[in-house]
Design a protein around this nucleic acid. Sequence first.
DNA 1: TTGAAAGCGCTAACAA
DNA 2: TTGTTAGCGCTTTCAA
Lengths: 342, 342
Amino acid sequence: MNGKNNTKRSRRGSGAITLRDVAKLAGVAPITASRAVNTPDQVSPEVLKKVLDAVHRTGYVPNRIAGGLASSRSRLIAAVVPSTVMSVFMETIESLNGTLFDAGYQLMLGQSGYSVAREELLLEAVIGRRPDGIFLTGILPPGKSRTRLLASGIPVVETWDLTPTPIDMLVGFSHSDIGRDVANFLMAKGRRRLALVRADDERAGRRATAFADAVVLGGQRDVFVVNVGDSRSLRSGREAMVRILVEVPDVDAIFCSSDLLALGVMTETKAQGVAVPERIAIVGFGDVPFLADMVPALSTVRINGADIGKQSARFLIERAEGRPVNPCVIDVGFSIVERDTT
Amino acid sequence: MNGKNNTKRSRRGSGAITLRDVAKLAGVAPITASRAVNTPDQVSPEVLKKVLDAVHRTGYVPNRIAGGLASSRSRLIAAVVPSTVMSVFMETIESLNGTLFDAGYQLMLGQSGYSVAREELLLEAVIGRRPDGIFLTGILPPGKSRTRLLASGIPVVETWDLTPTPIDMLVGFSHSDIGRDVANFLMAKGRRRLALVRADDERAGRRATAFADAVVLGGQRDVFVVNVGDSRSLRSGREAMVRILVEVPDVDAIFCSSDLLALGVMTETKAQGVAVPERIAIVGFGDVPFLADMVPALSTVRINGADIGKQSARFLIERAEGRPVNPCVIDVGFSIVERDTT
DNA sequence: TTGAAAGCGCTAACAA
DNA sequence: TTGTTAGCGCTTTCAA
């Protein structure tokens, strides 16, 4: 008589419409309602109509959390990026997310902030969500996180790099090939005194090493290197250029570890009246969309980031649906885009 | 004798270590293990030690999906942005994500792609995941999505704009105030023939209208407007500037709806040898980080995007923890940053 | 084609 | 402080 229920205990739940409500309204069993919603062709036309009707009348939205728990398939993919602001990786994330969404998956985004400690915490949190797959920017070095990830059994795709020992799947390109090719490209253009401006991350380091090696191999003097640390800003590029101009006045080519740094280098050359490309050639990395339309247009290394996202999504989806992926390594390559600055 | 189990039915589950396994190993009840993991001070030191030990030995990672289902709290926040590549919103997303993560929440990211149809699909998918809160860039106009969102009862924060009729919470600023203030700012500098370059979105439209109104009110001639449509690229800015220079040769100030467009406008002035700011003043919108260090440095409208993210996170977390939020509207304002181009 | 029963892995409610 | 019981909302398994 109190308007409540007659059971002893009560849990509140979320209070939202559930499949049971829909089923009751349609006069069928919950499981039948479930089939009508998820696999309509397993159900008779009349029942289908009744259920869909009830769905509309109630405004029912399936609870994917519950569904995920029951089926051990969360339809959630986690992606880890170092940063999201002005980052080369966002083109990849955008196409990854788009492809996943069209296949019925959602993306969880985590920022590792270029810090190992944070990345560890993040991966722990990510694994706790039991995603159907994990997208990593870069290669995860041996360590606690790698072990945990391996133990979790969750499909993983590492990206934007190559390694003979991936955790699982891999979509990337060779950073040392880039360093070497850019050095040779510059030397073929007659450049003899090369410098390099780089951020303090491991991949940029590998490009730098290969660049330096190729230059020595090409019979030129040692590469002058400026490491700008964690600051990837245009300002760092300017500051680096100030140093270079002072310490290596005869420099005639500069390879930067990002387009933004290259833009900074260019800005400083302009400010100091140094002719580009006549006196100094500049090459960036990443091919930020708007560079092509600037004056002078920056020569750079182009990575097809959208393709990395799409291929990764494809890999992850295949695995989530239980299909094998073979081969599970893709080298998407890169290209040197020659524009005004070389 | 067959090494399997002796029950009739069997579900496989995910095969991972569960709280039951940990509890069994520690010799306590599952709920006690749960308390040891989640609320350690509700448990005696000895039990705590035993359980934590078992956790380490097994490598147990709690299944937050199951936990979320049981407690009706997913600890998931969904964010919807139009785009992620070169977008002004990413600073907001980054700080939102960071703040949420530190409080134990994860971020789900969805791209609406400036399309209503896609946004509707996206919101449906988002609601199905039962997030504890939803972050929206912009105001959701009346329609199916708004109704559904309202009906879902999920806390929502709309951002980057102001409205008298928010769905729920609101963290933003006034776009018409910006348009008006920039116009007055330019006129106060003696500019008399104003033009405007804008992308085809509703917020830019409101800035444009207020800008034009203020110019007329200031006794100047009508504003010449170039709408670049959906193309927010630097190239569009250049093309717009070509048109302006032809059609309004006496133009002396231009307000752009994004920094990237402004950069395009600047590029074209440079290409054509037009003096900035002597002959033409340029104002952008968004304050992309690297603009300050370019030459000439672009004057622009600065929005504290990181603050929007932080405040939104705070709102969402408060609501998720069941606390009331009052007031639930914040105007974060904006500022006109004067640099070399005005 | 439809349904009953049993759980996915966890936590809220209640009791001791 | 610890445990028992009963679910959260859905899907799998098995049977009809």
